[in-house]
């Protein structure tokens, strides 16, 4: 088996949003939405801080599809458009998506974005990897773990572009992979563990 995953070392994440824009570019994500976004955890303002001055903390949390082992989105999809593939990724077959948004309600991470409108791009043209399929109006989309890249053995572009080396990509079923080693770090944790979705994406705090 293969369980592709990303580990994010939050101690190294500097909140720069490079992963967010790399993802947007690679996947031709239209304006007004991001597949991968960076949060300043618990704050109302990006680069805000938790606590009261000067007793402050700040954690950046890059958030995209968690590629759960037990994906809530997959179960509720009435047409099987959302599926778990043989590499352990949660993917969407855009041709099957009827735009009911069951998956969106089911995802505890708000990781999905919907094409409420005809996609619009400020560039006036498509960008990114030519291998990435187009999505139209009324279709759900989200992080594919850079399916088109990872199918070819390349890293997802967010991992490749991370200037802080905060992201590690690999196969959790390979115990020697860098991602497995990071997963074994005592500080590794998944988001919303209590939801039982068993994310393959994890974070080191």
């Amino acid at each position: 088996m293969t369980r592709l995953a990303i580990g994010v070392n939050l101690r190294r994440c500097i909140g720069c949003n490079t992963c967010a824009l790399a993802c947007k570019m690679q996947n031709n994500v239209p304006d007004g939405m991001l597949w991968n976004r960076v949060l300043t955890e618990g704050c109302e303002q990006f680069d805000g801080a938790e606590g009261t001055y000067p007793h402050l903390t700040r954690t950046y949390l890059p958030l995209a599809c968690q590629h759960c082992e037990n994906p809530a989105c997959e179960r509720v999809c009435p047409t099987g458009a959302t599926y778990k593939d043989d590499k352990g990724r949660v993917e969407i077959d855009y041709d099957k998506c009827i735009g009911c948004r069951m998956c969106m309600a089911a995802c505890p991470y708000n990781a999905r974005t919907f094409n409420w409108n005809e996609p619009v791009r400020a560039t006036g043209a498509a960008y990114g990897d030519a291998r990435v399929p187009e999505r139209g109006r009324g279709v759900m989309e989200k992080c594919t773990l850079c399916k088109e890249r990872t199918d070819e053995g390349e890293e997802p572009l967010c991992v490749r572009c991370c200037p802080a080396d905060a992201r590690v990509f690999g196969d959790l079923d390979d115990p020697n992979s860098a991602v497995s080693q990071l997963r074994r770090d005592g500080r590794a944790e998944v988001l919303l563990e209590e939801k039982g979705t068993r994310p393959q994406v994890f974070y080191v705090r």
Binding site: G32, M33, L34, R37, L39, T40, E41, G42, C43, E44, Q45, F46, G48, L61, L63, P108, Y109, N110, T113, F114, N115, W116, N117, L191, L192, K195
Partner: peptide, 11 residues
């Protein structure tokens, strides 16, 4: 479930 700025992209 996960609160933080900037939040959710509205689309």
């Amino acid at each position: 479930n996960i609160v933080g700025a900037n939040g959710i992209t509205l689309g």
